[in-house]
Design a binder for these strands. Structure first.
Length: 108
RNA sequence: GAAGUUGACUGGAUGAUCGCGGAAGCAGGGACCGAAAGGUCGCUUCUGAGGAAAGUCCGGGCUCCAUAGGGCAAGGUGCUGGGUAACGCCCAGUGGGGGAAACCCCAAGGAAAGUGCAACAGAGAUAUACCGCCCGGCCCUAAACAUUUUAUCUUAAUGAUGUUAAGUUAUGAUUUAUCUUAAUGAUUUUUAAGUUACUAUGUUUAGGGCCGGGUAAGGGUGGAAAGGCGAGGUAAGAGCUCACCGGCAGCCAGGUGACUGGCUGGCCCUGCAAACCCCACCUGGAGCAAGACCGAAUAGGGGAACAAUGAAACUGCCCGUUUCGUUCCCGGGUAAGGUCGCUUGAGGCCGUUGGCAACAACGGUCCUAGAUAGAUGAUCAUUACCUCUCAUAUGGGAGGAACAGAACCCGGCUUAUAGGUCAACUUCGUAU
């Protein structure tokens, strides 16, 4: 889990990134990126599954960000959206998917 | 040991590293975010998902809504007694059904208050006569009997006519004819008896048709056909009568009651009320985004008096209540800003007492998540469990590990759930 100050906590922040940010689709995760003070958000819709599956997806994505926070640029806002096929996938596969998206976006 | 029934429990464990939410303590010098309210940042310790946290189907607590009010309507519940804050829940019973049993299941008030529905089939569906059974009348057919008529045949008697033989008379003679006798019994008359056939009538029996009536035993249809079954009875039948069983009513006895048992009585009473309905009881509405407080920008809100009795809102309607117009006075409201509400509660565990039990009372003891784009995670190691596989006293490798995530809090119900554990009981088998 990230520190509270690094989390996106309000609808306005999410709307801004969705409207103005760029999207980088990956195999398991879609990433939206916008320049700004460092904040992260995580989304898992009901397509992913029940509450247990959605929580698991968000936790995996958070863990990826937490472990790679040191390598990221400091002026980006990122939203990670889980795709339905993320169900049952291990941590390392999700990490590879997200990092490849970040490299495409040149944020690390 | 096998099959089963019921109830209860469990829902992997240990460790390491990196992280997150909460609480308490220490530090209180500051820094950062924000317009403000307020929040964040350090160290230590403790603590952090479930049996269903789920579905949101019932019932409450709590909060607000004019005072939470009256009547109608609407909705819910529906055997009895108890438990409870309350319930559609639980316990104990009653009745009915299933099972060999342990045990399980039941929307289980009222159908003689009324209305309605009952497809198809069937003669007929709350009343019927299709087939059948029985009685009467008429008609037809067949048989038997009696009487009558006619006819045939047989037998007997009788006469007539024949045939054969002999004789007689007539004639010249023959033929022929007449007469007599005998034989024959061919044809036939009459009478009597018998037999057979037929006609008509009558009676009886059997069968058929039509008409009128009786019947609800039997047949078939159906979920259901006027209690069931047996005997008597009858023209045939029928609670028509009787025994037993079942239903109903009355009385008596037992039980708080549902109900049970006994006696008596007469047999009018198909099912559906998860159709309307009747009866009894219950229900105001909205929900923690309830609601309270704090604070900028922006918009403009509330109270009192007066006028009008129209409109709107409050639960669908009525009563009732409130608001809307004008004047005066006072400063307050907004889910996605913040803080509180927010976890001590109909609480858990242990014991005693009361109670068959649900449960209650008393005493002791414990405090056990509180997030808000929403914490409880990730990786690794060891080990327990299951499956597959290689070699096999055992070891190695691979894979699996259910249902599922608190969101104000409780009591229930329902649904999902891999694997495992325990207890009681039933039936069968084996051994003693």
């Amino acid at each position: 889990m990230l520190q509270r100050k690094l989390r996106l906590r309000h609808n306005t922040g999410f709307k801004a990134i969705f409207d103005k940010g760029k999207s980088y689709p990956g195999k398991y995760v879609v990433v939206y990126i916008l320049k700004g003070p460092t904040k992260f958000g995580f989304v898992a819709s009901k397509k992913v599954g029940n509450a247990v599956s959605r929580n698991r997806a968000k936790r995996l994505m958070r863990e990826v960000i937490r472990r790679n926070l040191f390598f990221l640029k400091e002026d980006v806002q990122i939203i990670c959206i889980a795709r339905p096929i993320i169900k049952g996938v291990s941590y390392s596969e999700v990490e590879n998917s997200i990092i490849s998206s970040f490299k495409k976006a040149k944020v690390m």
